[in-house]
Design a protein around this nucleic acid. Structure first.
Lengths: 245, 245
DNA sequence: CTCAAGGGTATACAGTTGTATACTTCCCAG
DNA sequence: CTGGGAAGTATACAACTGTATACCCTTGAG
């Protein structure tokens, strides 16, 4: 009952699957949708017999789902780690944190700095997982309903993770859960979209990165003032003239 | 040199082209990418001989570009009209408008109301042009570089129109041009994305519409406070404790 | 030792695809 | 009246596609 031969076998067994999935990623990254991929073309790229495909997948959609599943399992935790890493670089563990009530200004500043770090780490991460991101974003609005649904879930989960981290790291403690979810959803939508631009336009990376950061900060700021501690702004929007001056 | 026979001829002549373009839109809306469409399949759907395709287009990409071109020429002006319509419903023509300096609160309130109207009109518009929107959003991240580039331009133009209208209608006079452009870009990205959800999930339309509105308002608010007249917020973010209390 | 099963291969076949060539209509400019 | 060009059709063909059937190794459990 040694675990080594078992896992070795599994590795050997999964070889064809791996090759096919890699081939699919490679081909989709070179400007093709996954459904436009031929069974044979795929096998050719993987250096396998066409029929071998059937040993592992029933359809191309199933291949796509397998890729997405693997992709997310590899991406989710690292991304959470990125956020923690960013938060720690701003507030090192052990150092006493400030609460929103005590010092709102410092709290917002902290959120801004974490945003700065996270945006950059995220975009770099996208760059390192180029092909996976390209296919993910393409199929999110792509032709196959099954893949679309799966990727929608990926996005939802990503947003949920993000909201969760923001809460745990106490980055925006003044926002209620519903608002936090909305904002996280919008931020993740934008970030994935921008990640695509970031990948595709190497010469614009600095600009895109800055825009992304500014955008996220803008959203956070707007949310805090509109739906968090924004009594003043709320009153202003409702027509009551400002109190001071 | 009568214009009627000429245009009649042109109409008759363009019949095949029309049929092919309509067929393409119909098929793409039914869950397929445009590049995955076969020449013959297209002709079949249009009720034409396969070879007739070549009389009008050199490639499928060219068909796609033709559709996009037509689409934008039909969509751009109506959308601008929507914004004006929304602005007039808030500040009827003839009625004296307020300036930002005189009454900032009322000015923001105006922007919020116009947003409310515009978002709803836009989403309805998307619903009425269902197939065009579906294909546009799909191909924006799709496989064909030519279509992607064309649709990117569509988005850019849309954002530019939006920024222009906001300026002309004096909805956010406190923002500088660069900021306005950034925000308009983000808003249009989100709006197209959400339009897709709006189309695909009929039972969620009310929710999506509200979220979209809230999101846009949040972005505007954040931008005004972060990059417009947000001295107080800027100081807060930089670490200076708030003045009052 | 055996044998069943999983991964991989070879060959075959019918259906589809993109494209080429050649033919027909129709319309309008000269 | 006529000739040419634009729009559409018919037929043909080689290349490729998805699948089906049958065969081959390797492997690990009984």
């Amino acid at each position: 009952m040694a675990s080594k031969p078992q896992s070795l076998t599994k590795t050997v067994a999964a070889q064809g699957k791996r090759l096919l999935m890699d081939a699919a990623l490679k081909l989709t990254a070179q400007s093709r949708s996954i459904n436009a991929l031929g069974l044979r073309e795929l096998a050719r790229e993987a250096g396998l017999n066409p029929n071998t495909f059937y040993r592992h997948f029933k359809s191309i959609d199933e291949l796509g789902l397998a890729i997405i599943e693997e992709m997310t399992s590899q991406i989710r935790l690292p991304l959470r780690a990125l956020r923690r890493q960013a938060a720690e670089s701003v507030v090192p563990p052990g150092m006493a944190d400030v609460s929103w009530e005590t010092n709102p200004a410092l709290s917002m500043q902290k959120a801004t700095l974490v945003t700065h770090q996270t945006v950059r780490l995220f975009l770099d991460y996208a760059l390192q997982n180029r092909n996976a991101f390209i296919m993910g974003i393409r199929e999110l609005h792509g032709a196959s309903p099954a893949l679309r649904q799966a990727l929608r879930k990926v996005m939802t989960d990503f947003a949920a993770d993000m909201a969760d981290d923001i809460r745990q790291l106490q980055l925006l403690p003044m926002l209620d859960d519903a608002t936090l979810k909305d904002i996280a959803t919008a931020v993740s939508r934008e970030m994935f979209q921008l990640a695509m631009d970031y990948i595709e336009q190497p010469e614009q990376r600095e600009t895109i990165s800055n825009q992304a950061e500014l955008l996220v900060t803008t959203l956070f700021t707007g949310a805090v003032l509109l739906r968090g501690h924004g009594d003043l702004v709320m009153r202003a929007l409702r027509g009551t003239p400002p109190a001071a001056s």
